[in-house]
Design a protein around this nucleic acid. Sequence first.
DNA 1: TATGAATGAGTCTTCATTCAT
DNA 2: AATGAATGAAGACTCATTCAT
Lengths: 191, 191, 191, 191
Amino acid sequence: MSHAGYRRLMSLDRERVLKEAAALLTRRATASMDEIARAAGISRATLHRHFAGRDALVRALEQLGIERFGRALDEARLEEGDAADAVRRLIDRAEPVAGLLSFLYTENQLFEDEMDEGWNRLDARVQALFLRGQEEGAFRVDLSPAWLTDALYGLIASGAWAVHDGRVAAKDLTRMIAELLLGGARRRAER
Amino acid sequence: MSHAGYRRLMSLDRERVLKEAAALLTRRATASMDEIARAAGISRATLHRHFAGRDALVRALEQLGIERFGRALDEARLEEGDAADAVRRLIDRAEPVAGLLSFLYTENQLFEDEMDEGWNRLDARVQALFLRGQEEGAFRVDLSPAWLTDALYGLIASGAWAVHDGRVAAKDLTRMIAELLLGGARRRAER
Amino acid sequence: MSHAGYRRLMSLDRERVLKEAAALLTRRATASMDEIARAAGISRATLHRHFAGRDALVRALEQLGIERFGRALDEARLEEGDAADAVRRLIDRAEPVAGLLSFLYTENQLFEDEMDEGWNRLDARVQALFLRGQEEGAFRVDLSPAWLTDALYGLIASGAWAVHDGRVAAKDLTRMIAELLLGGARRRAER
Amino acid sequence: MSHAGYRRLMSLDRERVLKEAAALLTRRATASMDEIARAAGISRATLHRHFAGRDALVRALEQLGIERFGRALDEARLEEGDAADAVRRLIDRAEPVAGLLSFLYTENQLFEDEMDEGWNRLDARVQALFLRGQEEGAFRVDLSPAWLTDALYGLIASGAWAVHDGRVAAKDLTRMIAELLLGGARRRAER
DNA sequence: TATGAATGAGTCTTCATTCAT
DNA sequence: AATGAATGAAGACTCATTCAT
């Protein structure tokens, strides 16, 4: 087997382990390295060979989260068409990444100040969407893009919990988040 | 000092420790018993005398959280006046409890199914508020009270983070949450 | 109240506590100071006022054990009459002290070498009884008085367990120990 | 080294640790996990890897004690030949296990009722020996097999102590126990 | 004197990590 | 490269003892 082939295999393996770790840690943030290893079907020692330590694993998950959220933003084509529709697409695509991002957010309270560069870039893209909506006259301007962005994250997170706990049907999730974020709870005169 | 005085002091002491524990664990959910004890200015052993173990401490915090949120609901007078105004009062009062509730929510993933009776009662009161708003024609009916309730929690949580991270001014918090929850991001025709 | 009266009261109290401690530790050698205090109906702190520490308590129990066993020897009138009958009386009187002595024996493995003077005196009295029996021609001489003494202790201890676990009736205990110790298991030609 | 070799080593290792633990706990029942680990030449953590906790270790020692005592019974060939001779062989073989059994007996006061099945089987074999002796007319019938069995244990235990404390010579032990148990202290007319 | 409260010292246990095969 | 074994470090918990009232 070629050297490249080897590296490719390793990479696939690593990705699989990462995926399992994400799935497990998303459910239980305090899962031990042992549990993670077992969930991935490898030994603790091997897990440590893939990721130098717990921190390294979390950092790798961070990259995974950024990558996934980045892809979600790409797929949502934030710059195209009606801003409200773009928000709807964003919610739809971002929702599967909610658990992972939520875990990373909680986990990284420690490293607070050294917020990842990559993350900031993605965050800026979301804020830019809300800014565009305001500039186009679609969104109100008395709520800052930064707040609308944070609010979006919060709604996605609580929406994910609501589905997980069975209080909201999975198929309604995107619509409920979008409707609330865009239109709010108050009844509108015209609609 | 009288016997009653003694008992009162003990109670105050316990409450003080609990408060410190809440403050610390809200900031860092993984704080050790040692850190908690030091934060409260007592020894680890004394902490263990007050609360039989970590679980007991968390359960006591649960009661504290429920008590505080209950008081917030009382003070917000949910049954009085305009439903939208009641929501505003609720946000204002609930916001200081956000951190604690958020911690408890995360911590109790383990005990998931045995959700506290007391908590359910409080949750029902919030849902009842949204239902009243819908019945009075103030709130839209295509978003369930359960979801509006979860959304409120999510917005309060992300709002608290936004303030904590300096993205939103503390004094604006209540208004921003209320405006978004009630009116949404979309610009209204009439305003 | 007179000074002597005070001391007398204290002494009574102390004795009662000691008795409770003996009863509890005989059952569970690892009982904590807390349990002992509660069994005696006083606080841990008060227990510590009576006995400077756990060691002091055990030493006091040692004295109690020696005193009780000494009284048993006195009551058995070891020097009087038939040696075999004296052994029977000894077993009968010593049996209630068995638990306490057993506890002390186990507990004092640590202090091994500094065996109590008082205890040695009592032990010597028992050995003297067996020696007398040998000299009078009643007991065989190929088993040393020291071994017969140890054997007696062992049989009393296992007898106490057997009663406690319900394998032997309490009323039969003295007879069974005495018969075995004196006559052995083998069937005799003449009897 | 082969895989089988690996597994065999592990097993040997575990057995060695168990042996050291038995030796230490027999001498001092309150030895800490740390001391046990050091006695076995491993770290506390490794000890915990071999035995999930103190309870698990004690339970493993229980199995070891049963196994050893069982082997002693096998080697004593209780069913063969003269019952008295079988008792002598039993004492000779059981004596090395005395310390361990004594420790287990004391330790398990807590679990009292759930006496081990395996142990009961062994106990029954000893009782059966005494019953056989009675049926063959060799042993007296006014002392129950159950009591003779308990008495045997008690004599072995006190004999072991007597040797340990230097009151009886190790080489005489078996004979002294056997003579006392079988013939008693009283001088026989015929001999 | 008696006791509720406090604590230092120690034990058990778990975890992330390294080692040796 | 993968893994069973080993371990240092750290956390939870308990206990005997002391303090302050």
